[in-house]
Amino acid sequence: MKQPCISLMTSIGALILLTACAGSPRTPSDGGTQAVDLNDFTPKVDTFVVLLDSSDSMEESDGQKDKFQTALDSVASFNQAVPAIDINSGLVLFGKGAGNCAGHSMAKQIYGVSPHNKTDFRNALNAIECTGGSTPSGDALGQTASALAEATGNLAVFIVSDFEWEESASALSAVTSMRGTHGDRLCVYAIPVGDYRDKGALIADITGGASCGGVTAASDLASPDAMTAFVADTLMAPVPKVTYEKQTLSANTLFALNSAALSSTGQADLRKLAAYIKEHGSDLKDLKITGHTCNLGAESYNEGLSMRRAETVANFLAQQGLPANLMDVSGMGERSPSVSNDTREGRAQNRRVDVQIGTMKPQGN
């Protein structure tokens, strides 16, 4: 009669232990973070992996909530900020939550490495059942090194942790191994949670040794805008923009009255302009050539004259060796005066050809 009672008590005890170890499930919040705008940025990283610490020290408060909830929310917000681009991602959990909640701490890859999918990545975060145990950071970074061993292109590793690591030698060894394999293609970023001031040396060793990487506290990424900017900075590069410099040429110098034929003075001025434009070299991306007139005469006539004059300037610049395929030619007639047409001087100033020189510097300049 006693044996069933003992078995029942054992089962109840195991259930209580399992429940106690599991803790309360947490729901990650992305805080309404917006994805990086692809009109302004383009990808610079091909694969990223996030390492999320779920050990017992992460159960402590960071002043607002427990550190793991802060870390979980940070990773959810990071995921939300990644735009719809061709990029691979992975998620590695290290601590008790990576295995059986009643068992030992371990490191486990719970997503990827595979093409990034926001929903699947978020579902992996939602599936984390508990925290606790020791901090197997070396195993986590070792698994990351193995996952990225054959990866090509630029790589980024993000470690979200309080960096209360009992033993860091194996973690540093794994990072050193990754750097040896990937060189400057690898960037390592630390996102410390809580007070990490006494962990500066460890974090510097983990993130240093490359031309990229660094440290940004989770508290500094708490706002949606801050996280979007962080993802833009670490995974993306700014889209180069064409900037314009306007050169204005007087039609009174270029042409005779009511004419679209270049004068000798006009030809000399355009040769100088062509030489100046050529100095921009491969940065030259666009030439907008626009003719203008004053308001004397019929509007339709003025529009036609301004167009003919702009075409004459474009043709002459092309003869000087500038690429015609970069030229956008238009005639505004009297519709866009630069000053009032009420005086003779003003009308003379409005008779002009504007040449806007569009250049685009390579990224990083």
Rank of each mutant, 00 (worst) to 15 (best):
C5W: 11
T10E: 14
G13I: 11
L18P: 02
L18V: 12
T19N: 12
G23D: 05
G23K: 04
G31E: 00
G31M: 02
D40C: 06
F41Q: 11
F41G: 09
P43S: 06
F48C: 06
F48Q: 00
L52K: 03
L52C: 05
S55K: 09
M58C: 02
E60C: 05
S61M: 01
D62R: 09
D62W: 09
D66A: 00
D66S: 07
F68I: 14
T70R: 10
A71P: 08
A71M: 07
A76F: 03
V82R: 04
I87H: 02
N88R: 13
S89N: 11
N100G: 10
K108F: 01
S114V: 02
P115V: 12
T119P: 01
N123F: 08
N123Q: 13
G132I: 12
G133R: 06
T135C: 09
A140V: 08
Q143K: 13
S146D: 14
S146Y: 04
A147P: 05
A147T: 10
A149K: 11
A151R: 13
G153N: 13
N154G: 00
V157E: 01
E164R: 14
W165G: 05
S170N: 14
S170T: 15
A174G: 06
A174F: 03
R179V: 00
R185E: 03
C187H: 07
V188E: 06
Y189F: 14
A190F: 13
K199I: 09
G200Y: 02
I206D: 12
I206H: 11
G209W: 07
S211C: 03
S211M: 04
G213R: 08
A222G: 00
P224F: 03
M227R: 07
A229F: 03
D233A: 12
T234R: 15
P240Y: 04
K241S: 02
V242M: 13
S250R: 07
L254G: 05
F255K: 07
L257R: 09
A260L: 00
A260V: 02
L262C: 02
L262T: 07
K272L: 15
Y276H: 11
I277E: 05
S282E: 13
S282Q: 11
L287T: 04
L287M: 05
K288N: 14
H292L: 08
T293F: 07
G297I: 02
L305T: 00
S306Q: 03
R309S: 01
R309W: 03
V313D: 04
A318V: 04
G321R: 01
P323Y: 11
D328M: 10
R335G: 05
E345Q: 08
E345R: 10
A348C: 00
A348H: 01
Q349E: 12
Q349N: 09
R352P: 01
M360Y: 01
